[in-house]
Amino acid sequence: MNRLTTIVLATALGCMGVLAAGPAAGASARFGCQYKVLWPTAGVYEDPNPNSVVVKTKHAGDIVGASTCEGAGHNEYGYVLVTTDAAADGRGWMREDAVVQI
Rank of each mutant, 00 (worst) to 15 (best):
M1N: 14
N2M: 12
N2I: 12
L4I: 10
L4Q: 13
L4A: 15
T6F: 00
A10S: 06
A10K: 00
T11S: 06
T11W: 02
T11N: 04
A12N: 03
G14V: 06
C15Q: 08
C15I: 02
V18E: 11
V18W: 14
L19H: 10
A21Q: 15
A21E: 15
A21R: 15
P23W: 15
A24E: 12
A24M: 12
A25K: 15
G26F: 10
G26N: 11
G26S: 11
G26W: 11
G26P: 04
A27C: 06
A27Y: 09
A27Q: 04
A29S: 05
F31C: 04
F31A: 08
G32D: 06
C33R: 03
Q34K: 10
Y35D: 09
Y35W: 09
K36Q: 15
V37M: 05
L38I: 12
L38M: 14
W39Y: 07
P40E: 07
T41W: 01
A42Q: 02
G43L: 00
G43R: 01
G43P: 00
V44G: 07
V44P: 04
V44D: 03
E46F: 00
D47Y: 02
D47F: 02
P48Q: 02
P48K: 01
P48E: 03
N49Q: 03
N49E: 07
N49D: 09
P50S: 04
N51D: 15
S52T: 08
S52G: 10
S52H: 06
V54K: 05
V54M: 04
T57W: 01
K58T: 11
G61S: 15
G61M: 14
D62S: 08
I63V: 14
A66H: 13
S67D: 13
T68S: 15
T68H: 11
C69H: 06
C69T: 01
E70M: 01
G71Q: 10
A72G: 10
G73P: 02
G73V: 04
G73C: 07
H74C: 13
H74N: 09
H74F: 09
N75H: 10
N75V: 03
E76K: 06
E76Q: 12
Y77V: 07
Y79P: 02
V80K: 03
L81M: 09
T83V: 09
T83R: 13
T84C: 11
A86N: 09
A87R: 05
A87H: 04
A88V: 13
A88H: 10
A88N: 14
A88L: 10
D89P: 00
D89M: 12
D89T: 15
G90N: 14
G90S: 15
R91G: 00
G92T: 03
W93A: 03
R95I: 02
R95Q: 08
E96V: 05
A98V: 06
A98H: 07
V99Y: 03
V99L: 03
V100Q: 09
V100M: 09
V100T: 14
Q101E: 13
